[in-house]
């Protein structure tokens, strides 16, 4: 995983719980915390940090990761506004994640290990996203979707009907758009 993600996680923990909390998490995990944004670090380290954050804050791990997703999105949007400006609604934006955004990201970072999304486009008001990734960060995707909905000012419901954490081959995220 790219160092930039670790740095955002550090920033979120420090903003929410203070420098002491992040320091404590690093002390617990034994990790250095010296992450360079453009470098790649083992996926296990982010999971170790999340576990330690859960221990430190008492917040549910899934919710912690969801919050991190919500926290990441504004930064992504600030760095790549064109991906958001190309769409006027949440559904269209979510469809572009695998079909356009990830393609562009791979051009810039050929070594990036991105999750894969498949889609079922049931109707204009419904969309099913199938998430596949060896990192199983499906709750991060939930947080990112939630922040995107806020950006497009869209009310929605999300049913995570099947989950890789429960042994499914892929996660099924069923969305209904209420507006």
């Amino acid at each position: 995983m790219k160092g930039v993600v670790f740095n955002y996680l550090a920033e979120m923990v420090e903003e929410g719980f203070g420098l002491e909390a992040w320091d404590s998490i690093l002390q617990t995990t034994g990790l250095s915390g010296n992450y360079i944004a453009s470098e790649t670090y083992p996926d296990e380290e982010i999971l170790m940090l999340v576990d330690a954050a859960h221990e430190k804050t008492g917040i549910d791990k899934k919710e912690l990761i969801r919050s991190f997703g919500r926290y990441l999105l504004p930064s992504f949007r600030e760095q790549n506004p064109q991906f958001f400006e190309a769409h006027t609604d949440l559904r269209s934006f979510l469809l572009s994640v695998d079909r356009m955004i990830h393609i562009e990201v791979r051009k810039l970072h050929p070594d990036a290990a991105l999750p894969e999304f498949d889609y079922d486009e049931e109707s204009e008001s419904e969309l099913t996203m199938y998430y596949t990734s060896p990192r199983k960060l499906c709750h991060l995707a939930e947080g990112l979707i939630d922040a995107s909905a806020e950006h497009y000012n869209t009310k929605y419901t999300l049913d995570h009907t099947e989950c890789m954490h429960d042994g499914a081959e892929r996660c099924t995220l069923h969305l209904k758009f209420l507006d």
Binding site: L19, E20, D23, L26, Q27, S32, G33, N34, Y35, I36
Partner: peptide, 15 residues
Amino acid sequence: VLNRAYEREKARRKK
């Protein structure tokens, strides 16, 4: 805590 944060930042910058 501050000292470790400073050392982390210092090491990060050096890297």
